[in-house]
């Protein structure tokens, strides 16, 4: 396997009771994550980014489930495995050890009943056989790495004593303490103040390099992508609509949705222009048309877009796009 992770044909089902058919929230998603790559996933809320990542972790719960046709191959320390075929206990050995995750809301991501130390120690105790003293030393060292001041004192604090930025640093410490191969960051800066956001992103970039960890960065913020990622996949309504290297994506944007996203990013200096927004809203799962899922919001919609779904095709080397416009341009 050339990649750290190869996701093939991911589909996520939503169970709606015995009488109704299942709805596919995501389908046909293929992702290849290279070793030490920083991979960005961008899209509006509800487009399926978060559940895609939860399915890598095996953390989807009722009424959501991964479709049996999916395979997620992962190069673990013990060789290549298919994450969707692992038993619960095999998956637990991977979770937190080889694949870690940090979440959007640091204020609620830690158990309010336990000290920071005990929550860091947990991550160690599930995967190592360190004793209390060794764990204390490791936790202390890790807090220093995530640049938490007075780590000694913070260890004995409870989550409600700390600010959002500090808690997110603690979350990063927990995620990286077992030196995982892959870190999934689900909107890690969305809930933070702008000034703190930059600090956290810098910290993540720095640690990623020193730990040799691949990162999947989920965000709705193209600014975050620009600052951290090498490869980007754009999600829309449960599908990938465009995927390319970062420079290619920003400079040779192919999909109308990505263009819209780029246009809606506010840039300083252009104060006089009104804010751009993509009209309409993401369609609901189960109510997708058989055509392109973006057609009713697309400024370049044609008759074909309404009736049949375009495939994800290569428009330039390494640049994939799901749009009839580009396919026709290429074919011609």
């Amino acid at each position: 396997m050339n990649h750290l992770l190869e996701m093939r044909n991911l589909a996520i089902n939503l169970y709606r009771g015995k009488k109704q058919p299942q709805v596919k929230l995501c389908e046909g998603i293929n992702l290849d994550i290279k070793v030490r790559q920083n991979f960005g996933i961008v899209g509006e809320s509800g487009c399926g980014k978060s559940i895609t990542c939860s399915s890598i972790m095996g953390l989807l719960s009722y009424p959501l489930s991964v479709d049996p046709s999916t395979s997620i191959r992962f190069a673990s320390n013990d060789g290549e495995v298919d994450l969707t075929r692992l038993s619960a206990s095999q998956m637990r050995r991977i979770r937190g050890k080889e694949i870690s995750m940090i979440f959007q809301e640091p204020m609620t991501a830690l158990d309010p009943m336990y000290t920071i130390e005990s929550q860091i120690n947990e991550a160690l105790s599930f995967h190592t056989s360190l004793n209390r003293q060794e764990m204390h030393v490791a936790a202390l060292a890790m807090l220093e790495k995530v640049k938490i001041p007075r780590p000694d004192q913070i260890l004995s604090d409870y989550p409600h004593h700390l600010s959002g930025g500090m808690l997110q640093r603690v979350m990063i410490a927990i995620a990286l303490i077992n030196n995982p191969r892959l870190l999934i960051a689900d909107e890690p800066t969305t809930a933070l103040d702008v000034t703190i956001q930059a600090q956290i992103l810098d910290l993540m970039n720095e640690l990623r390099e020193s730990y040799n960890t691949s990162v999947i960065m989920i965000t709705h913020d193209l600014g975050v992508i620009a600052e951290t990622c090498e490869m980007v996949a754009v999600f829309y309504a449960g599908q990938i609509v465009e995927q390319a290297e970062i420079n290619e994506l920003f400079h040779a944007t192919a999909h109308p949705y990505t263009k819209g996203l780029l246009k809606s990013v506010t840039s300083l200096g252009k104060v006089s222009e009104p804010l751009y927004s993509i009209a309409g809203a993401v369609p609901t799962a189960g109510a997708f048309s058989k055509g392109c899922r973006f057609h009713d919001r697309c400024i370049a919609c044609t008759e074909k877009c309404r009736t049949s779904m375009p495939e994800l095709t290569e428009v330039a080397p390494g640049h994939l796009c799901r749009c009839w416009l580009n396919q026709e341009a290429n074919n011609a």
Partner: peptide
């Protein structure tokens, strides 16, 4: 349903620890 339960599971906790300890 709270977030921290997902964190605990993401750390690799068993169901027993998730349910009873947290």
């Amino acid at each position: 349903q709270q977030d921290f339960i997902k964190t605990v599971r993401a750390k690799g906790a068993s169901e027993r620890i998730t349910i009873f300890k947290h």
